[in-house]
Structure formats: C-alpha cells, structure tokens
C-alpha cells in the first residue's frame, strides 16, 4: 500500500512538469467546416472546434472544407478549400527570449492575422510557400487589447 501511495505522489509531481514541458499546445481550432482535419504523425485525427493543435501538426481541407485556429500569441490563421498548412515551429516564451513562428502553406489559400510574436520580434515570423517566403517588416504598433469590461 505504501508503494501505491508513493507512486501516486510521483505522478502528481510529474503532472505539472509535463504541463509546462515542450509539448504545450500552440493553439486551438476555432472553426471546422466540411472536410477538414488536423494531421498528426501523417494521420488525420478527429477534429472539432476546441481541439488542441501542436507543433508539427498540419491542417488540411478537402474541396468543401475550411478551418480556422488561434495561436497562443493571438495569431489567427484560417485556410480555405483544398489547402494544407504545416505548423513547423512555434516558440512563445518572451521571458526566455525564445520567439519563433514558422508556418508553411503547401497548397491552397490561407489568411493570417499575425499576433504578439510578430509585434515583439517581426524577424522571427516566417510564412513559407513552395514559391516564395513571406517575412514581416518591423512596424511600430501596439498590441490590440480588447477589454469588454470597459
């Protein structure tokens, strides 16, 4: 019995470490329409609004699909039909000086409203495509803060 208690305690101690570890989600799905899913380890997974998205996931839609997500840094990304976008890198730890955001559109259409990483470190944001890469030029702007309490 003592052993069991010890094991349970160890699991409890580990849980927060896992939560703060490298595999923190990069964001979550907000809208799924038609044929659309997250691809994880090359396999489509059941994708509903609210699903967590991780680094190395791809988002893929069929001819009738569209999909939208929000990242932890407030970046909003949506894709239209017959599209595929890969989340290649997402680091959002300003206090550790770790900022990086690389996505790759393989085909189709995408709309992206950049967020806090783009504000703090525009050079750390890159949107790649098969024909060209898109970078952000430093622009002086304050982050938008929506406060419904006012």
């Amino acid at each position: 019995m003592k052993k069991l208690v010890a094991c349970t305690a160890a699991v409890c101690l580990l849980a927060p470490l896992i939560a703060y570890g490298a595999e923190m989600p990069v964001g979550s799905i907000k809208t799924v329409q038609g044929t659309a899913s997250i691809i994880r380890n090359r396999t489509p997974i059941d994708t509903k609004a609210g699903a967590r998205v991780f680094r190395n996931d791809s988002l893929k839609t069929g001819a009738d699909g569209s999909l939208a997500m929000v990242f932890r840094d407030d970046t909003r990304l949506s894709i239209g039909p017959d599209s595929e976008v890969a989340i290649e890198e997402f680091l959002f730890s300003p206090a550790q000086g770790k900022l990086s955001f690389i996505t790759r559109l393989l085909r189709g259409t995408a709309a992206c409203m950049t967020g806090i990483i783009g504000k703090l470190s525009p050079e750390s944001v890159r949107f790649e495509t098969p024909v060209a890469n898109i970078g952000i030029r430093g622009t002086a702007f304050a982050v938008k803060v929506d406060d419904p309490g006012r």
Partner: peptide, 27 residues
C-alpha cells in the same frame, strides 16, 4: 506547380496567400 494564395494580416495587417485563377500564386 500547385497554386498558392496567401492573405496576410499583420497584427495590424492581414496576409492572404491564395491560389488565384489558373496557375498563379499570389500574396
């Protein structure tokens, strides 16, 4: 060549990548 279209909105701008009509890629 697969076509690509991007619309980019930055924090204060929007980027769109899109596949235009035909074999075009546009941002």
């Amino acid at each position: 060549m697969r076509s690509i279209s991007i619309a980019l909105f930055l924090a204060h701008a929007l980027l769109l990548l899109a596949s235009c009509a035909g074999e075009r890629n546009v941002v």
